[in-house]
Design a binder for these strands. Sequence first.
DNA 1: CTGAAAGCGCTAACAG
DNA 2: CTGTTAGCGCTTTCAG
Lengths: 328, 328
Amino acid sequence: MDATIYDVSRLSGVSTATVSRTFSDPGRVREATRRKVFEAAEILHYSPNAIARAMARQRTDKIAFLICKKDATILDEFYARICESIMRRAIQSDRQLVISTAADWAQAASTAQNKQVEGVILGGSAQADMVSEFQSKNIAVVLVNHRMPGFDLPCVVSDEYGGMCLAVEHLLRRGHRSIAMIAGRLSPYIAGERYNAFLRVMREHGIEAGAGHIGMCDPTVESAASAARELLSRENRPTAILGGNDVIAAGVLKAALRLGLRVPEDLAVVGFDDSTICGMVEPELTSVHIDCRRIGELGVDCLHALLNGEECPPVTVVPAALRVRRSS
Amino acid sequence: MDATIYDVSRLSGVSTATVSRTFSDPGRVREATRRKVFEAAEILHYSPNAIARAMARQRTDKIAFLICKKDATILDEFYARICESIMRRAIQSDRQLVISTAADWAQAASTAQNKQVEGVILGGSAQADMVSEFQSKNIAVVLVNHRMPGFDLPCVVSDEYGGMCLAVEHLLRRGHRSIAMIAGRLSPYIAGERYNAFLRVMREHGIEAGAGHIGMCDPTVESAASAARELLSRENRPTAILGGNDVIAAGVLKAALRLGLRVPEDLAVVGFDDSTICGMVEPELTSVHIDCRRIGELGVDCLHALLNGEECPPVTVVPAALRVRRSS
DNA sequence: CTGAAAGCGCTAACAG
DNA sequence: CTGTTAGCGCTTTCAG
């Protein structure tokens, strides 16, 4: 059997309470005592049992990250980035992290239910009932890359509106007047922000824009490519296309190249997310950089604030930036 | 406060032991009793406390997946795939999963040390001392995508040798005689398997091959592209290049296109991993498919076997396959 | 600064 | 099939 606090207590000649203190807050025991305890622990290869600790303290220091977007998992680079950043931040703050995807919502819920998780970060399109369920169980909730007006919970989002403005302004500056968008199945919140930004900037520049400039597709290269093909075969084909993310933009690029169009000369292509895809394709993709790392960090920070009963801004907006590359 | 087993016991009029049984193994209590218990639980919104359970049972049902490759995290699609599959499988078998990367090895070790983790799956180039450390703590270890001769632990790998054979044979069949390889910093084990396969197949076809056919690069598109540029500017340039993974192959593709070479007419390119990159680039990449899903599943299964004291084959090889696309 | 002792919520013999 | 009871290993008052 592994050594317990009793063994250490016996060997070091102090009480178990002191051993406990020595490990959880060394400052509260006298230097000499501390030394004795650590020595004994060393000899016995003792290390505290986190389970017993959680049981006694009635808290687990465990949080969860739940990716709520259908089909979006860790395999989606965007969420993988957020996830990675959350992992790092969670470690820094000595919290354990459990990760789930929408696919196992039931599992996630039961994990939380079993009093193991004190707070959750919900990524993507969280459902209202999920949120209320957590909140009713007194589990802190933070939204990431999503907003839910009407709910009292902090959320961390990228500046979708601003990002889109940057992209459109960039294209206008390059002389484009006929700009189309191909959106994947983005969440209404994000789609809305971007659409409004698009319309506003276009109109500010005296260009009438409307639904005719918006194409739709599934979030796959193939689907994006065929949506692009459709757009590009119109008699008044656009000279620039904005993809809802880089996968879509890559699809547009493929479609264009196969139609014999030169990019960026005949068609400019701009993506969203600034993922690794941008560097893979030829020509490299201009893309709106979304600061996933920051989003993840802030998500964890908000959750901590909540758990510590501190104030936390209801919405945090992380700036986006445009990374201009050869495709535009 | 949340309801406990005592509350349920009181309300339902049975002992706590019976409540416990009802939840952990309903079959062991009479139907009527079970109903009473569940009803009471319902009323009280009771759900078992996993922490207390773990404490009493002296087991956590928790396993870990640790990605040991430097810089490789969840952001690396290859590991993300394995990870995803491990997540699924772990859920199916009611185990909690904690995920760590090499970057937080210290953290991972301490998590394990705190008696929270009963077994770990090590992905990539695990260090011998890591492994012994775990084993000395009586934590079960399984290797995934790696082998460590001399250690007594199960490992699950892809058929690197076979995969490479498929790729080379494919190129030979297409008439290529001058084939080069650009390897990233693969682990010695994998590099070795592939190199041997390459040499064997080439020689079987009467082609002398050696180190001169092997280029090296960092695992980035840029580095791969410059390695490819070097190879392609030799007077006797190869007519086909095998990339150690798809990122490298994408780099080769870029370099070739920029040199004005047509792919596959002037140069055939083949990647490894069959990742989403293959479909992003134009032309699409031929690649050796590695069955990450299966590797992950088998990894979990092996770990379970170990934890249950069952037999487990020391090495499991998952077949690879070639996905032929336009680039070759 | 340190010790004694009462739990935290659940499980697992052991009896019945 | 069900109840009794003794822990699991640690934290945390409350005294001293």
